[in-house]
Design a protein around this nucleic acid. Structure first.
Lengths: 342, 342
DNA sequence: GATCGCGATGTTATCGGTAACTCTTCTCTG
DNA sequence: CAGAGAAGAGTTACCGATAACATCGCGATC
């Protein structure tokens, strides 16, 4: 094969296509976007040349010139956490399927508000925020008013009307359900190890747990404050487990439950004989733990897909497909929970 | 507050800054990029106006006009897997810190080669590939020659010189080390449950395991073929565990080990009394499993950061900082492994 | 004192597209 | 048969930057 013809083979632009096809560059643009009226013959010819030249529109140029938005940036905090990671997966998949390119920017715990605008490639860039924790919620607030945004949030805001561009899982009902399940097994009450709150008010999971206890007329213990990690769960309950009257612990996520189970082992408590442990999220290892973990399955991926659906609708109300539904939380009963000890 | 002055407040462009500062738009560009010589007075004046107007350069326009590359797209397969997810985190962190915006595109198992170019925002876009599995390796091969790419790969290629733009972990030595560790505990031999290979040749982990056995003059069992999930590990070893002479199992990743441990429980084998299980990756739950898992810790995040370092160097050999080093694999001994049964 | 050289800026072209407006043809009415 | 209306395609401006080239002073050299 002979050397390349030119000094540098720059890949084909819309002009090259136009020249080869013998039409104006604008006509090529029309064909690409399937917009205005172009004769069938011309369209075919242009498509042919596009294929022949291997032409791909430059998305940067399209965006710059004010074409339809085809990119999103996801703002998320720590993707090591299952919920955020799974939501991100759902968002990415939905966006990619819809032909969007997706950017990602991780929020550090202490990232400043002013920092947020810097993460966008251009003013008015479309954004999705995973706002399950404080950093996410702050980022959501810090976004300039002119950016089209959709968010996956922990909770529906109590005050004012719902923001139509937010999606959430019904953590509250799920926590209440899990609590009722434990009470139904004969436990006198249920203790709760909380994940950090994304807001100043009572988190949804904590609230659901409390309501279920109150509704059943049971004592409401002080919730234990955990972090996100197994270690924090371990530390939070270590002292509590000396008290044999504690027979049921609900955890804000599966990682906390992991730590709680280890603390139980060390305290000589048998699960589920002496102690029932229930997690939240149904992270992948849960089913294979020893004992396998009873937990609340949350459809984070579905939530992520729905969140993109909202954004898509916001960007293009005419043509965007319906926002996909996501599954309700579901209690998955496994080995870690059982009847209260006699 | 009165209504906004104009019909629509479009955010400041380089022209607005130039006009307000009383200089040409080119001078503003010079200041932004700190490039050519601009008098100190002018520079100060321009910076002042930039701050005043809250001006942020439009990165799309910068890229279009041929400015320095400040964005990367990461091609990765299933981010539900710990290795890929952690590597991605490292890449994103390093890229963001260096002022790059990062895009992400997940490769489906069967994504076509032709599909790859479509994922790039423009021809010649910088790319990082996480090529631990087949989909990743195929994507790496499918990339056009003109895209600057750096990759995190499973193994150093056997044939030809090293590709200077690839980074990897020494899986082979790590597997050999873990195998020797088990032999040192008195186990007659070690069985291996493999993760799927990214290449047609023998994967590094399998190879290291085999070499260690051979070097010690021990029998080399047929490696079991697992997938990536706990379930596949469970299925792979279920029949094997009936054989009491099997006392040590090394797993290609921690998820497989999770499945193996469950199979052992069901087979009535005690860990580590009857059976030692060693994983690979040191995924987060490992330390809190019951029993906690002996495993090989791999510095995926460091690998990801290094991979970005390579790319950065490739894009800008003059100014890019040195490529950061990453940690060697390290065997973390926990509860799941112990002396061979008498 | 005129020319040279260079620092500091301004001009103009260009990147690869989209949007709005214009210009031809036809075809359909009246 | 003339004029309106619309389909099909071309022209021109613009998006927000960067790069190459041109210009303007001004001190140094001869």
């Amino acid at each position: 094969m002979p050397a390349q013809d030119g000094p540098r083979t720059r890949s084909a632009s819309i002009w090259d296509v136009a020249r080869v096809a013998g039409v104006s560059q604008q006509t090529v643009s029309r064909v690409i976007n399937g917009k205005a009226r172009v004769s069938e013959a011309t369209r075919a010819r242009v498509l042919e040349v596009i294929a022949e030249l291997g032409y791909r529109p430059n998305r940067l140029a399209q965006a710059l010139a004010g074409g339809p938005v085809r990119s999103v940036t996801v703002l998320t905090s720590d993707t090591a956490l299952y919920g955020a990671a799974a939501t991100l997966r759902g968002m990415e998949e939905a966006a990619r399927t819809a032909g969007f390119s997706v950017g990602i920017s991780v929020l550090e715990r202490d990232s400043a508000q002013a920092d947020i605008a810097l993460r966008l490639n251009r003013p008015g860039e479309a954004v999705m925020v995973i706002a399950f924790d404080d950093a996410g919620v702050r980022a959501l607030r810090a976004l300039p008013a002119d950016v089209p945004v959709a968010a996956a949030v922990e909770r529906r805001p109590d005050d004012g009307p719902d923001d139509p561009w937010q999606a959430w899982l019904d953590d509250r009902a799920a926590a209440a359900h899990a609590t009722r399940y434990l009470l139904g097994l004969g436990h006198r009450t249920v203790h709760y190890v909380a994940i950090p709150s994304s807001t100043s008010v009572l988190p949804q999971r904590t609230q659901g747990w409390q309501e279920a206890l109150r509704a059943a007329g049971r004592p409401v213990p002080e919730p234990l404050t955990g972090g996100w990690s197994p270690r924090s769960g371990y530390l939070a309950v270590r002292s509590l487990l000396a008290d044999r009257s504690v027979t049921a612990v609900l955890c804000g996520n599966d990682d906390l439950a992991l730590g709680v189970m280890r603390a139980a082992r060390e305290a000589g408590r048998d699960i589920p004989g002496d102690l029932s442990v229930v997690g939240f999220d149904d992270s992948p290892p849960s089913a294979y733990l020893n004992p396998s973990l009873t937990t609340v399955r949350l459809d984070f991926e579905g939530l992520g897909r729905a969140c993109f659906g909202l954004l898509h609708r916001r960007l293009d109300p005419q043509n965007a497909p319906a926002v996909p539904a996501w599954s309700e939380p579901e209690l998955i009963v496994r080995e870690s929970s059982g009847p209260a000890p006699a």
